[in-house]
Amino acid sequence: MDAQAYGERNDRRQSETQHDLPRLLDRAARGAGYDRAQWQIQRKGDEQLAVRPVDGTEPRLVDDYVRHLAAELREYNSDRVPRARLRLRTVVHQGLVELADNGFAGTAVVATARLLNAPALYDALAAHPEADLAVLLSDDVFRSHVAGGHTTLRTGDFTRVTVHVKEYEAPAWLRVPALDAAPASHEHGSAAPVSGEPTAERPAPAAAGGEPGISNDYRADSINVTNMTGPVDARGAVFGFGSTGA
């Protein structure tokens, strides 16, 4: 992740950004159930590259961590004048990484750096001055976690873009959490929004004359009861109540 327009700040503002950014990221991580002290982090002023091991919680990184990060930024910026706001470009990618003597090595690291400099991220923040955060997922992350149905996010929350930075060219998926819908297309790539699965038609409620549909009649013989003890992780679940009247 990288802070937008950092170079336009004076010395005092740059120092403030470098002080506040890691603390904000730490709070967002704790809110999502992570401890960034366990991550390998390469710091560079207003930019951080964090590497964490694969442990099965990757969907939560894409979903919960980004949500908490957006909330932390919103709170941080709430009382600030526009030029003092902290706005971030954030990228999530996955792949093999080697710890080297001067940082991290590997094609996944290079790809992450190229994605972070994607024009689509800059354009998204420029087009939406009210937004504090723009997120870009690599195609692999998007298909593994979002399209795979492992998060509470919808595929329609993202816009497909083509990132071409230096020698790197690949599709990626853009999201601006402050917006209800995916951001508008840009000229830097094929940005046709991708919608989720079509919603199945639902039968209309039963009319007074007994038309087919959902019945509101009480049917004790059709009641199913599930007893659960202890906490239940129901993130992404959908619960329905009622009778089909069959």
Rank of each mutant, 00 (worst) to 15 (best):
M1V: 11
V165W: 05
H186W: 08
S190R: 10
H93L: 07
S138N: 05
G242T: 12
A3N: 00
V163Q: 00
P205H: 09
R175M: 13
A184F: 05
V146E: 00
Y168D: 02
P212Q: 13
G45Q: 03
S144R: 14
A147R: 03
G45L: 04
L88R: 00
I214N: 10
L153A: 05
T155H: 00
F158V: 03
V66T: 15
I41R: 10
V225K: 07
A126P: 04
V146S: 02
R12D: 12
R235C: 05
I41H: 03
D233A: 08
R27G: 04
A134Q: 00
G56P: 06
G189C: 05
D35I: 05
S195F: 12
T107V: 10
A181V: 13
Q14F: 02
D139Y: 04
L153G: 01
E58Q: 13
H19D: 09
V232Y: 13
E201C: 06
P183S: 09
T226W: 04
R143H: 15
A113Y: 03
D46F: 03
E72R: 03
R235D: 11
G7N: 01
G189L: 03
Y122N: 14
S78C: 12
T107Q: 13
T226Q: 09
D221G: 15
Y122C: 02
G230L: 11
F142S: 02
H93I: 04
P171N: 05
F241K: 07
R30E: 12
R13A: 15
